[in-house]
Design a protein around this nucleic acid. Sequence first.
DNA 1: CTGAAAGCGCTAACAC
DNA 2: GTGTTAGCGCTTTCAG
Lengths: 360, 360
Amino acid sequence: MARSAPAPSRRKTADGKSAPERPGGHASSRSSGSVTLSDVAKLAGVSPITVSRVLNRPELVTQDTIDIVREAIARTGYVPNLLAGGLASRRSRLVAALVPTIASSMFAETVESLTDRLAEAGYQVLLGLSGYPAVREDDLLDAILGRRPDGILLTGIKHSPATRQRLLAARIPVVEIWDYTPTPIDTLVGFSHDEAGREVADYLLAKGHRRFAVVSADDDRAALRQKGFLAELAARDITDARIFTVPAPGTLGTGRESAARLLDGEAPPEAVFCSSDILAQGVLAEALSRGLSIPGDLAVMGFGDLDFAAHTFPALTTVRIDRRAVGRLAAETMLARIDGRPGIETVIDIGFQVIERASA
Amino acid sequence: MARSAPAPSRRKTADGKSAPERPGGHASSRSSGSVTLSDVAKLAGVSPITVSRVLNRPELVTQDTIDIVREAIARTGYVPNLLAGGLASRRSRLVAALVPTIASSMFAETVESLTDRLAEAGYQVLLGLSGYPAVREDDLLDAILGRRPDGILLTGIKHSPATRQRLLAARIPVVEIWDYTPTPIDTLVGFSHDEAGREVADYLLAKGHRRFAVVSADDDRAALRQKGFLAELAARDITDARIFTVPAPGTLGTGRESAARLLDGEAPPEAVFCSSDILAQGVLAEALSRGLSIPGDLAVMGFGDLDFAAHTFPALTTVRIDRRAVGRLAAETMLARIDGRPGIETVIDIGFQVIERASA
DNA sequence: CTGAAAGCGCTAACAC
DNA sequence: GTGTTAGCGCTTTCAG
């Protein structure tokens, strides 16, 4: 299938270019390594604490002192040791974020907007990738909690008892995202997947469809959407929807394969609900390759990635979620909670929209 | 264009569900908060250092002691404070990674595989998003260096003098990725964009094309590919390639717009070289909507996102880069350097491949 | 407005 | 094998 043209995969090995030698060797005044607060203080002729104040609470220091200290900082190239600062102050200025993956743009954009907003407020994000079966969540959590983050963001609302317990013990703000429950561990920014599934069903039913299929990735939230979808169909006495479950995260390939089996089967569906836009994309690719017209011959419903769908397959209808808004709101909520405030609202339902475009 | 169906965007405000109260209140023996090494030591009836050894160097401790200490750790729910550990040992077990964005899967997959590999080795990744104009790189770097990472990964080889200087002063391993130079700051895992551009030109020329266009995002590496591409064309006396530059990161929308202008212009090109697969996708969307056959009427060359292209537009030819391999090799190189080893090779050129699929 | 003393929680050395 | 003694570099009191 794929032929590879002139592949210049040569492996250039450089000469043993000297690596920056690790210890000593430099004309630095200190024994071990980097410049410390005391070094700066000495150079500025003040006490260490004054330097600390210039950095963290300049309003407590005279402008003159500030200038002198800033000068000394610049001359020495001092970079405050946040490990030491965090240890002493019990505030790490670190927020941990646990997501299944960033390889799909689903969470990547949320993480990115979260990171941006938190950076503005002087926080950094420690990223934890739990993987889709989320088996690593417990181990990961320990590694992360060890950094003493000031807050932690989790994807979803299903966590092991161990996770819950450790979270509570850590006594830090927790923001759960991408799902909905009236009783989060602490705070939540998300929406109801069950309801999203129901609305998709309503929408497709209103279009007059009666033969359905679901192509769904094997993850908790996708399962919820599927559940809502099927429940709503059942309420209309439709119980023969075909269901394809593929490993999470869904890919173009698995979406396409599912579609192939679907379309080869007897009584192919009029409408397919996919648990992600990537899967929907795969279904569309297969449908188009068979010359089917969309949505005339087959209605395809995606979930989540609007921009993408909008340009490549205008006929794709999708459920819109503002992924960056999730990150932004999660950041605001987190900052509020770190600040000791109740956290905007305890539960923020960001909602979703069924977006339909002019058919192709 | 986009109509929104029943949008249940209601904002559920929960009651002021009690947040985990911050200080005190618990029956814990300690004054401030979490369990410390000493707490565990007391409970186990050993000295603190023994607990430390059980955790970090169990081979120095008797099995009996290990069991007792492990038991105490479990009972107390002790989570080692890595801030304190890092401060004392001067090893943070943190590796920083600076990338422009993770919203495009370009770097997301690289970051993900890097994170996975480093996690196995007991390191965590501190993610820094520099943004595309990379204006934030300097500020970000200070925030990151303050965490005293054991190593740092940078995207690209173009860095400000300030960045270079701070990096050298930090005296930690540096791995530059996604570009090529025989003289990296310390170590490099990437490939030559200039050469990639040249090969694309060769490939398209070999196909018999003579009228070219470039749709390129406004970033350093894309510019290098463009440069290589144009240089190779010039060597064959083709100097009339049309050039469209769009803001980085490229999107489907900007790709599509560029294509529209391209195809509306006089003497539309036979072949377009896009600086990313997303842009190529946009170009293809526009071309298809005009009923053009691909690659018959228009050859489209993408860059980087193979899986994606493979399924949605079989006719798209692309330059393949194994993004996960970049992350994996960067991780290995990083670990080697942290370990004091020379770092596999100083320069690893992972190469690239021009991948052609059966035309649609 | 600035400083001195004490300690955050852990580990590097050196004893025993 | 295990313990003791000192810090790591910063910030928190509390004085002045």
